[in-house]
Amino acid sequence: MRLRINPLLAKEFHQRMRTARAPIVITSYLCGMSILTFFLLYENVQGQLYLVQPTKSQQVFVLLSLLQMTVVAFLAPAFAAGSVSGERERKTLAVLLTTPVSPIGILLGKVLSSSALLVLLVVVTLPVYSLVFLFGGAVPQEVVSVLAFQLLTIVVISTICVLFSTIALRSTWSTVFSYGTVGLMMVVFGALGYGLKGLYEQNPIDLFTLSWSHFFYALNPLYVEAALEGAVSAEPSIWVTFVEFYAVAIVILLVPSLWRLRPQWFSWLPFWSRSTEKQYQ
């Protein structure tokens, strides 16, 4: 049997990549990152006796990767938040649901297509990161793990946004929920972790507060990335908590999403009634 690419993914690639917008976005982003990297490296070596300063170079690497994480995290909803609700608003969803493409296939195609450009943005910055190698401070494994974590975060955020887009019915609400979630991940969880850590430092015997602080830190992509880079002290398995938490969140959001797309799948539930079934297409 011939392997076939998800039709939605192929279609959206086609639609997105043939316009001038995609190369312009990628080129602009790459230029911006390159200029910033050059500036930071130049600042580091200026007035110094030695060109190679691993500690400062490490700081450049951390700063760049955190900046990139912030940018892609806040860009992800722009691509994903209107994916399914947009189909509904364009009135193309009903037809799609009468094809053999399953609701899971539709969601998968939407997640992959909406995260594709962001993945490309991250991948094209690899040569920029490699500049940091020239000055020492970061080892290839570190760069690979940071990159892998960034890709994972893109997929996680895109998935959550696509699911909100399925649940919320309207793109406006979906965008609100998506940016709210990104704000929660990037700002609120970090602030909670920081606040609880502060409380623990005032009362060092309160280990309960410390464990919650670690938990909230583990949900913050910036903190986990910094931990992978060794910029903050954290357990090496901090990313596992991140993966577990968001996997559970995605599974929880997946249920109402599938309900929206194919309510018939829930006919086995005792409270499900055919007379209250609505069409959300």
């Binding site: 192929a10 279609k11 364009r90 193309t92 094809t99």
Partner: peptide, 27 residues
Amino acid sequence: GYMPDAFGVYDDLTVMEYLRFFADCYR
């Protein structure tokens, strides 16, 4: 083959691409 009352189309595809997309959906 189902054509709904209120239907939408993928505007930024050509006619041929549009048909090809649905052909892919049906493998």
